[in-house]
C-alpha cells in the first residue's frame, strides 16, 4: 500500500466518523417527546433515543460514554475478516459480547450499567486499531487517526460539559412547562465537581425538636437525611408511591385520593409533620406534586435544591 492509498483510507475513516457523528448527534439532540419524566431523564423518550442511548448505549450514548466507542463495531468486523483470532482474543470477545448483551437487555436504561464495559471497549478499540494498522503496514500515519480520536473526544466533552442546565431540569421544564424557582438557582450553583452538601437543610432538620408531636419527616428518596442528621425518617419514593415500614412496602397515596385524608394519615399514623424533597424529585409524580401544592407549606429551602414542607 503506497502513501497515497494510506492517506486516502485515513481520510475515508475521518469522513465516515464525521457523517456518523453528525447523524447521531442530530437524533440525540432532537426535542423531548412525551411526558414521562423518567424516560426523558434517562434519554430514552423516543424510539431513536431508546436505541441510541438505551440498547446500543455503549456505542452511541455520547453524552455519558464518549463518541468513539461505536468505531469498535466496523473495526471488529474488519479484524475478524482479515486476521485469525488467537484463543485469548476469542475468549476476550466472547466475554465482552456476553456482558454487552446482558447490559443491553437488562440494563439498557441505566447509564451506570452501560459504563461497565467502557474501559475494556476503549482498550479493545485501540488494540484492534493498532493491529489493523500493522496488518495494512501503516507507519506513523496511524497517529493521525489516534489524534483524530482525541479531537473527537474533546469536541464531545466541550459539547456536553459546557451545557448550562442539568438534564433533569430540562426534562422538568419540558413536562411542566416551567422551571420552578429554586431549581434554577440549584442549576446555577450546581457543578459536577463541586456539588454542594445541603448544609443549611441538614442544620435545619437537626434543630427540629423530636419531642414535638408530628416531628417525623417523610424523606423523598434522599439518603443524605439519614447519613447527615442521624435522625429517624420515613423512607419514601414518590415515583413508585412507596414508603417502607417494619411491615414492608406500603403505598402512601393509593387509596387516599382525598388529600385531607392523606394529610391526616401522614400526621396521625406516620407521625410525620414534614416532607423532605427536591423540586426535581417532585416532578416524578404529578399527584404528589399536587398534594404538596395543595396541602403543604414551604418550611425551608436550601440553596442546593433541597426543600422541606410542613404538612397542613
Amino acid at each position: 500500500m503506497n502513501w497515497l492509498q494510506r492517506y486516502s483510507i485515513l481520510f475515508a475513516i475521518f469522513l465516515l466518523c464525521l457523517l456518523v457523528l453528525n447523524f447521531v448527534y442530530n437524533l440525540l439532540d432532537a426535542p423531548f417527546s412525551g411526558t414521562d419524566i423518567n424516560l426523558i431523564n434517562r434519554g430514552i423518550d423516543t424510539t431513536e433515543r431508546e436505541w441510541l442511548n438505551g440498547y446500543l448505549g455503549l456505542f452511541f450514548r455520547f453524552k455519558f460514554l464518549g463518541n468513539i466507542n461505536w468505531l469498535l463495531l466496523p473495526l471488529i468486523i474488519l479484524y475478524m475478516s482479515v486476521m485469525k483470532f488467537k484463543k485469548w482474543e476469542l475468549a476476550a470477545l466472547i466475554s465482552w459480547l456476553f456482558i454487552f448483551f446482558l447490559v443491553m437487555s437488562k440494563g439498557y436504561f441505566n447509564m451506570r450499567y452501560q459504563i461497565t464495559l467502557l474501559p475494556l471497549t476503549l482498550t479493545m478499540l485501540l488494540y484492534i486499531s493498532w493491529k489493523l494498522f500493522d496488518f495494512y503496514k501503516f507507519g506513523n500515519e496511524r497517529f493521525l487517526y489516534f489524534f483524530f480520536l482525541v479531537i473527537l473526544l474533546i469536541y464531545n466533552d466541550v459539547k456536553f460539559f459546557t451545557s448550562g442546565t442539568s438534564k433533569t431540569d430540562e426534562a422538568l421544564a419540558h413536562v411542566s412547562g416551567e422551571i420552578k424557582s429554586g431549581t434554577t438557582e440549584h442549576t446555577k450553583n450546581y457543578t459536577l465537581w463541586m456539588n454542594p452538601k445541603p448544609v443549611q437543610m441538614i442544620q435545619y432538620l437537626k434543630n427540629i425538636d423530636p419531642q414535638l408531636p408530628n416531628s417525623g419527616v417523610i424523606v423523598n428518596n434522599l439518603p443524605s437525611y439519614y447519613y447527615y442528621t442521624g435522625k429517624k425518617g420515613v423512607y419514601y419514593w414518590c415515583q413508585d408511591d412507596v414508603y417502607y415500614s417494619k411491615d414492608g412496602e406500603q403505598k402512601l397515596m393509593r387509596g387516599r385520593e382525598d388529600f385531607n385524608a392523606l394529610a391526616a394519615f401522614i400526621r396521625d399514623s406516620l407521625q410525620c409533620g414534614f416532607i423532605l424533597s427536591t423540586f426535581q424529585f417532585e416532578g416524578y409524580n404529578p399527584l404528589f406534586d399536587k398534594f404538596i401544592q395543595d396541602k403543604c407549606r414551604l418550611e425551608f429551602q436550601d440553596p442546593t435544591g433541597y426543600v422541606l414542607y410542613s404538612v397542613l
Binding site: 455519558f64 468513539i68 447509564m111 467502557l118 476503549l122 485501540l126 482525541v150 474533546i154 460539559f161
Partner: peptide, 13 residues
Amino acid sequence: ISGAVLMLNSGII
C-alpha cells in the same frame, strides 16, 4: 494514547 483516550472520555471523566 490509551491514557489520553480514557481520560478524555466523558464517561470516565
